[in-house]
Design a protein around this nucleic acid. Structure first.
Lengths: 120, 120
DNA sequence: CCGAATCCTATATGATACTG
DNA sequence: CAGTATCATATAGGATTCGG
């Protein structure tokens, strides 16, 4: 779930935790970022890596990541269209965060790396 | 947002990222965990540290954290009631994750540590 | 003091169809 | 290929009230 930007946040010393969470939250953002760490990808290339995502959701999540300054969207004026997504430098700074999330998940949750589905 | 347990997850190499996110997501879970890293707290002690949370939401989030094995709830059969919350060993393992989120937030978002509210 | 029970709303997500 | 546009639904989060 991505919440409204500029919404007032609870402020305690842990405030920054939620601030970060709100930016990378969204059902697919974590995985999208994860794949983009490995390099620039086209729209459909990302889609292939997320077999269950709908076109609409991929667009939505990418737009939010772009809006938040994590992802750069490059449109090539060709026919058929070609759009590439890559991380901005700000997006790169999220790598330790995403990797911490992945590391914990790998160590503490059981899921099968199957074709396209895993169960928590 | 906390999603249903055992829901099928998208499985790609980044699957673990979302698996972890789904567990610590929830508007207040990150901050609650953050405060519990500093030691056992009573219900109202947590509440004081999260000035804007409602009683219902604090209960809800704590119950989910308990359900997911991160938090231990200890009820003292007294009048008036006394309930203490502490981290389980599994909860402790989240510390690097939460701290990575906090570190990023501290370095990359602007917010004011005020009385009770900050703006992203 | 620490909740549970209700009721309510916003919004995140999804299904589906269409398009330059 | 890479999107929009529409419609539908579930659920997260909140306000309020009551209780042991």
């Amino acid at each position: 779930m991505t919440r409204i930007r500029h919404k007032s946040l609870e402020c305690s010393p842990g405030c920054a935790v939620e601030a970060t969470l709100q930016l990378i939250d969204g059902k697919w953002k974590g995985v999208i970022l994860y794949h983009l760490f490995q390099g620039t990808l086209r729209f459909n290339e990302i889609r292939k890596r997320l077999p269950n995502i709908t076109q609409r959701m991929l667009t939505t999540q990418l737009r939010e990541l772009e809006r938040d300054g994590f992802v750069l969207r490059t449109v090539y004026p060709e026919v058929p269209p070609k759009v590439e997504y890559s991380l901005t430098s700000r997006g790169q700074t999220l790598e330790p965060v995403i990797m911490a999330l992945k590391k914990w998940g790998d160590e503490h949750t059981q899921f099968q790396h199957g074709h396209d589905v895993c169960v928590e």
